[in-house]
């Protein structure tokens, strides 16, 4: 499934990445980002972050990130008390630069993935995940 997904993503030319929103002022997570990038500029594009638009359960939200050519991908939940989630590291023999995990979100917030590429450049994608009370269906 991973291979199909990756192939499709490549064919689709980053359609899913269009959901990336302009990053807002990152008071939260600034420290983690600075430590990861060393203050380098971060480009948009090249990272596919897949999250649900609305979390079915804020305690366990599935997150997938895919950044072909990355050596490292850091995932941040900017609205959490502790924004750092995880960092995936990929060795030179890695068949895919893809990671999938579940994270806990305390409230509606932006989830961000920042990839460090082999050439030392950085790219990112963000998406908003809504955590809601719910309860009314059509």
């Amino acid at each position: 499934m991973k291979f199909t997904r990756r192939d499709t993503m490549l064919m689709a030319g980053g359609v899913a990445a269009l959901s990336a929103l302009p990053i807002r002022a990152l008071a939260a997570g600034e420290e983690e980002i600075a430590a990861f990038t060393g203050g380098a500029a971060i480009a948009e594009g090249g990272v596919t972050l897949t999250t649900p638009e609305i979390a079915e359960n804020g305690n366990t939200v599935p997150v997938e990130v895919n950044a072909p050519g990355a050596v490292s991908i850091m995932v941040l939940a900017l609205g959490n008390p502790n924004p750092g989630v995880c960092t995936f590291n990929f060795g030179p023999l890695a068949g895919a630069q893809y990671g999938s995990t579940r994270i806990r979100l305390s409230k509606t917030q932006m989830v961000t993935a920042i990839a460090k590429m082999a050439d030392g450049s950085f790219a990112q994608a963000s998406s908003e995940v809504k955590v809601t009370i719910g309860g009314c269906g059509g």
Binding site: I54, K130, G134
Partner: peptide, 16 residues
């Protein structure tokens, strides 16, 4: 919360 499920300007965040 319910109002945002109905009136979020992005339809993907609406529940219908």
């Amino acid at each position: 919360d319910v109002a945002d499920n109905l009136f979020n300007p992005d339809p993907y965040y609406q529940q219908g």
